[in-house]
Amino acid sequence: DDWEIHFNNITIRLHGVSEEQIEELKELIKNGAHEEELRKWAEEVNR
């Protein structure tokens, strides 16, 4: 699925990401992940 997530003036566009991966991302954000951590997560997902 395609997703677009907005938070802290950042837009993250995701393509072909599962519901499970979105839940992981929500947890990262909820736990106060920094932009660098989110980038690493996105790189892993996009492999």
Rank of each mutant, 00 (worst) to 15 (best):
E24Y: 09
N8V: 08
E36I: 03
E43S: 02
W3I: 14
N46F: 11
K40V: 02
R47Q: 15
D2M: 15
D1I: 15
L38S: 00
V45E: 03
D1G: 14
E43F: 01
V45C: 05
K30F: 06
E43I: 01
N9Y: 04
K40M: 04
E23D: 14
A33K: 03
G16W: 12
E20G: 12
H34L: 15
E19C: 14
E36N: 13
A33W: 04
E19Y: 12
I12N: 04
S18N: 10
E43Y: 01
A33H: 04
E23K: 10
N9K: 07
E27C: 10
A42T: 05
E43R: 00
A33N: 03
E35G: 07
A42R: 02
I5G: 03
A42K: 02
S18K: 06
H34Q: 14
W41V: 08
K30L: 09
L14P: 02
D1R: 15
E37C: 07
L28M: 13
D1K: 15
E27H: 10
W3P: 04
L38N: 00
E19S: 12
D2T: 13
F7S: 02
R47M: 15
V45A: 14
D1H: 14
W41R: 08
S18H: 05
Q21C: 08
N8G: 15
K40Y: 05
S18C: 07
V17H: 03
N31I: 05
R39T: 09
E24P: 01
R13H: 15
R39A: 11
E43C: 06
E24C: 04
N46S: 13
E24L: 11
H34N: 15
S18L: 06
T11Y: 04
K40C: 05
H15K: 10
D1E: 15
E4Y: 09
R47Y: 04
E4G: 02
I10T: 08
D1V: 15
H6K: 11
E20S: 14
A33R: 02
K26M: 15
E35P: 11
L25K: 00
V45F: 10
E44I: 08
E43V: 01
E43N: 02
E37H: 06
E37P: 00
G16C: 11
E44R: 07
E43G: 01
N9D: 11
F7I: 11
L25W: 03
L38Q: 00
I12C: 05
E23A: 12
L28T: 00
K30I: 09
I10N: 03
L14A: 04
R47P: 13
E20A: 14
N31K: 11
E24W: 06
L38K: 01
E43K: 01
L25T: 00
E23M: 13
H6C: 10
S18V: 04
E19V: 13
L25N: 00
A42D: 09
D1P: 13
N46E: 09
